[in-house]
Amino acid sequence: MSQSAAPALSNTDRNPGMPLRTDWFDQIAVNTQAAERRAATLTTRRTVKKEWQAAWLVNAIRCIDLTTLAGDDTEDRVRRLCAKAVRPLADHIMAGLGLEHLTTGAVCVYPTMVAAAVKAVAGTGIPVASVATGFPAGLMPLDLRLAEIRYAVDQGAEEIDIVITRAHVLDGNWAALYDEVAAMREACGAAHMKAILATGDLQTLRNVYKASMVAMQAGSDFIKTSTGKEGVNATLPVSLIMVRALRDYTDRTGDRVGFKPAGGMKTAKDAIAWQILMKEEMGNDWLRSDLFRLGASSMLGDIERQLERHITGRYAASSRHAIA
């Protein structure tokens, strides 16, 4: 198995954005049943077993944004999370896989926890991501949301996960959505920006496509499905539509934008399913952490259990792979 690390994000990878072009999506039509059928066949048409499954799971770890976004978060919990990000697998599993170095793609926390996370991962190369802009609802005045972005960046966050105003999508007010996201992108400065669309609140797949395109035109470096707090979070049909929008944007502009599903993904099987989606729709380049992230926490525990079974032939108790 390869020991090479996935490439880190760099400022040269930024999506520069462009002026709003509603003609790129005004007449878009989405066949919901076809999207659901395509999503349903993704994991049945391609299967991975044994050492190939282990390789896919290791790659998933490299792409995880290991996350804690709870109301009772403490600096101690964040430090434990960061320790898991630095050493996501037990030593005997690393040795069995022939790996010398492995980390998660990032850690993701609230703005007030950024400083603790930055200190905990110092020298490891793991970026700290922070949610901002009134996460998860985003229902705050824009100047306060922009101030929260600047605060998180000042604390050391290298990536910012913003939330959009869902009402702009539901009202079809694309100019307002574009201006909001562009202002957030400016406030991020050198930090990469992931635009959370909260797709479970957007009602239709057409709205998901349109919101994805506006967010990318406004300069989002990633588009992300969910906050994890909606009634419906990441699903394969929604992810398929977002990835198709991403592909259309890349084909038109030549600029590559990343994708991050988040919320509701808990198992190693989920990790493989979303990687298959990226491989089938975008190719191997989008199986790297600079273009693909998985927003998850409990998923890592199940991946570790599956990899231990691959190495030892038996499952360990879930408590042996606790995160925080």
Rank of each mutant, 00 (worst) to 15 (best):
Y209T: 00
M216P: 01
G98S: 04
T253I: 03
V128H: 07
V86S: 15
H92L: 10
M299L: 15
M193Y: 02
Q53H: 15
E308P: 15
V58T: 02
A54F: 07
M213Y: 02
T68N: 10
M299W: 12
V86F: 12
Y249D: 09
Q3G: 15
G313V: 06
Q3K: 13
A95P: 13
V153E: 04
I64W: 01
N233I: 00
E281I: 13
M18L: 10
I303D: 02
A271G: 08
P7E: 07
N11M: 15
A90E: 15
L9T: 07
M1I: 08
S2C: 11
A60N: 10
L170N: 10
I28S: 03
H92I: 15
I64P: 06
G17A: 08
E75N: 12
R21Y: 04
R314H: 13
W274D: 02
K260L: 04
D302E: 06
S297E: 03
N31Q: 04
Y315V: 13
E100Y: 12
P237R: 00
A198P: 09
Y178A: 03
P7A: 13
R14Q: 06
E36F: 12
A182N: 09
K84F: 08
R37K: 15
M18H: 05
G123W: 13
T47R: 15
K279E: 14
Q27W: 08
N15C: 05
H310A: 12
L240H: 02
D171K: 14
I241G: 00
V78Y: 01
L81N: 09
D251E: 14
Y178C: 06
Y249V: 07
R288C: 11
S130W: 06
V48P: 11
R46C: 14
G125Y: 14
E304M: 12
F259A: 07
K194C: 03
E230R: 01
P127Q: 09
I61R: 05
D221K: 09
R256H: 15
Q53I: 14
A5E: 11
P16F: 12
L81M: 11
P141R: 12
K260P: 07
I241V: 04
A34S: 04
D65R: 05
L9E: 14
R14W: 06
A167Q: 13
V121S: 01
V232I: 03
G17N: 01
Q275T: 03
G105Y: 03
T41E: 11
L170A: 08
K279I: 14
T44N: 08
R166H: 10
I164D: 00
R247Q: 03
I276G: 13
A234V: 06
M278I: 06
H310K: 08
D221T: 08
A116Y: 07
Y151I: 13
K266C: 12
S239D: 09
T47H: 15
F292G: 05
A83C: 14
